[in-house]
Design a binder for these strands. Sequence first.
DNA 1: ACACAAATTTGAATTGATAAAAATGTAAAC
DNA 2: GTTTACATTTTTATCAATTCAAATTTGTGT
Lengths: 331, 331
Amino acid sequence: MSSLNDVARKAGVSIATVSRVINKGSNVNEVTRAKVLKAIKELKYQPSRVAKRLRSKSASSNLIGLLIPDIQNPFYVDVLRGVEDVAYENNYAVIMCNFAQDEIKEKMYLDILQQESIDGLIAAPAHEKDSNVIKLLNDGLPIVCVDRGLIGKDVDVVVVNNRDGAYAAVDHLAKSGYKRIAYISGQKQIPSSKYREMGYRDALEDNGISLDLDLIKYGDSKHGSGVELCEELLSSANPPDAIFTGNNLITLGALETIHKRELKIPEQVAIVGFDDMMWSISLNPPLSAVRQPAYEIGRRACELLIQRIGDPKRSPIQMTLNTKLILRKSC
Amino acid sequence: MSSLNDVARKAGVSIATVSRVINKGSNVNEVTRAKVLKAIKELKYQPSRVAKRLRSKSASSNLIGLLIPDIQNPFYVDVLRGVEDVAYENNYAVIMCNFAQDEIKEKMYLDILQQESIDGLIAAPAHEKDSNVIKLLNDGLPIVCVDRGLIGKDVDVVVVNNRDGAYAAVDHLAKSGYKRIAYISGQKQIPSSKYREMGYRDALEDNGISLDLDLIKYGDSKHGSGVELCEELLSSANPPDAIFTGNNLITLGALETIHKRELKIPEQVAIVGFDDMMWSISLNPPLSAVRQPAYEIGRRACELLIQRIGDPKRSPIQMTLNTKLILRKSC
DNA sequence: ACACAAATTTGAATTGATAAAAATGTAAAC
DNA sequence: GTTTACATTTTTATCAATTCAAATTTGTGT
């Protein structure tokens, strides 16, 4: 790897001149510029981003961090794609960090991101009081939150209307005649779970169905808890006739359990999940689901972040996108 | 952010001493060490990874790059998880770059990774002659290839036995009595597609089924081509009675088309896909598939890479893992 | 108390870039 | 022929760390 110095020597000028050729380009003679460019080409010179960052703290690293709780969840994959597309269009590269719902891991990644002096961060915090993320925010790093905000902090947020999405799904179940509608929730402490539960409760109430707390199960937002909690529900004395699942992976886990018990969907038990997937139509049966515009969440978040990097003082925006109930054959 | 200098001043010693306390720790008096550690704690000092990397090229940045062709493909998500788990265990962070099968994007990402002076790279190259990856290899960067190698280059590789995996699937279809077995391939130029086709052809031949080139369709390894190519196959004058799909996303696309046409699986058309997914059992019908140990591929690749970073001269290893045919209800 | 060795600490150079100050060169103005 | 203005280029300092040679302190034995 050749350095500025090598180029300068080869072109017979000083490093400062080479630097000017590469950067703004003002105040440099055409003849000199040509010499330098030739040397750069011959040496296949590439500037060291590391040295650049060290020198000028203000200099953009053109790196943004993306902090995600669970990359196995297709929802976050779509968010990632949205973020990445916008980042790429704007000449940013994305460092993706999957903390797998482990706050120690989260801290390690955030430390690294900060030490790499990223320009900004898109984060789905572990929960609303996520001190690791709050610390960076207090340090002045541009941050956009997705899927959940930070309590008491004025920060850019892109979320969906979780309460309404859940309401629509459960309302539809109720109006379709299901009486014992269960809810398998993700981690209780994350806001999206709470809002979805709120929508669930409201829809039941509005349809005159009394709440049965045995029909609400709390898990960890992963596949395994979908399997287990669905099992619990179905093996209870008074099982549900419909299930509303709190996310992607829970839905797939619940489906697995239902199929293992060879129950007919929706005749014996109906199911609607939060989060749609490209291949939901190929599931057995084609799955009804509350679609979140995950890709767009990613795009919007990245747009907001790039704006904020450009103007750190802009007042924060909370953006709420709408969900859409996609009806197929599972309810 | 405080620097070495701040710590040195606060502790009343030179920066060299502070550096020694932080790093190896040899040749430093216990009293001094205590003073320095106290100052570090008080200032919440964290060493700058940027400065460290600039200073000593040999010093580990504890960063590895992961270059992936398509993050939407769950196979690569599992590889990523494997890589990440091992990286985390060994105190490395992973920069994930998804080049979305776009070689220009690939080049941009690789340039960035090199400029960030990563310690090593795990790459699924675009194809066997991928000049972008070869360039880094020639520059001496430790590299491990997954899923496909680099032609004419002696490099660590972790692959699965694609030919045998495909053979097992197609052989099973043939032995089950299917006569017109189609193959929907991913991108023709990638090795895994070629080897899978080889297994397909061999299995047909060994079962006395003559090859019909109309039954081989080449796509781009993505969902859309699964949809379209399956459509082409099914609408032809002499449609197949079974389909072997070249990967995950193609399988899901093909399933979508089959369902749209309301064909019974496996009665009217059977299907076996390359790549298994956690939720394959919940598909309609539960999908038979050739399982690749994706998570293990990731783990192994990362282990090899960390070894190679430690010993750049170690002679390259080609590791071939085995696939397993998982039979469910789709054939 | 002295010489010598060992342990500890420091100073200065280095890494690759940027930015501000200083220096050089060129041409027009007086 | 000198001054001045302007364009161009170089010098030097800086960023935060590592590293090695040099300097200093400490310890040991006589």
